[in-house]
Amino acid sequence: MLKDSSAGYGLISIVIHWLSALLILFLFGLGIYMTGLGYYDDWYHKGPALHISLGLIVLLLMLARVTWRLLSHTPVALGDKPAQLMAARLVKWGLYLAIFVVLISGYLITTAEGKPASLFDWIYFPALAELSADQVDLAGELHEYLAWGIIALVVLHVAGALVHHFVVRDRTLVRMLKPVKK
Rank of each mutant, 00 (worst) to 15 (best):
L56P: 01
G55N: 00
L70K: 08
A83P: 11
L108E: 01
F100Q: 04
L59C: 08
I32K: 15
L119Q: 04
L63T: 09
L54T: 04
G55P: 00
L70Y: 08
G140P: 10
I99W: 03
L61H: 01
L59T: 05
A161E: 08
K178H: 10
T35V: 10
V58Q: 01
L37D: 01
L173K: 07
L85P: 15
H73Q: 11
Y145L: 12
P126K: 12
A77D: 12
E113I: 09
D121Y: 13
K181C: 03
I123D: 01
E141F: 14
K181D: 08
L2M: 12
L97M: 10
P48Y: 04
V167Q: 09
I32S: 10
V167F: 07
L60I: 13
H73Y: 06
Y107A: 04
Q84Y: 12
L97K: 06
S105F: 00
R69I: 10
I151L: 02
A159M: 06
H45S: 13
G106A: 05
G79Y: 01
W18F: 07
A77P: 15
A49H: 07
H157E: 09
M86A: 14
G10C: 04
I99Q: 00
G8D: 03
I16E: 02
E144M: 14
I52K: 05
A98S: 11
L128R: 08
G140A: 08
A83R: 12
L128F: 10
L128H: 04
V174Q: 13
H165S: 08
L60W: 14
A117F: 07
A21L: 10
L173N: 00
I24H: 05
L56F: 04
E141Y: 12
L119P: 00
G160L: 03
L61E: 06
L85Y: 11
R171A: 15
Y124P: 03
W43N: 14
F120H: 11
A127S: 13
D42C: 13
R69E: 07
I99P: 03
Y33V: 10
L60A: 14
L95Q: 07
G38C: 04
L56Q: 00
H45T: 10
L146Q: 07
R169H: 09
L173T: 01
L30A: 09
L63R: 01
L2D: 07
L103E: 00
G149E: 05
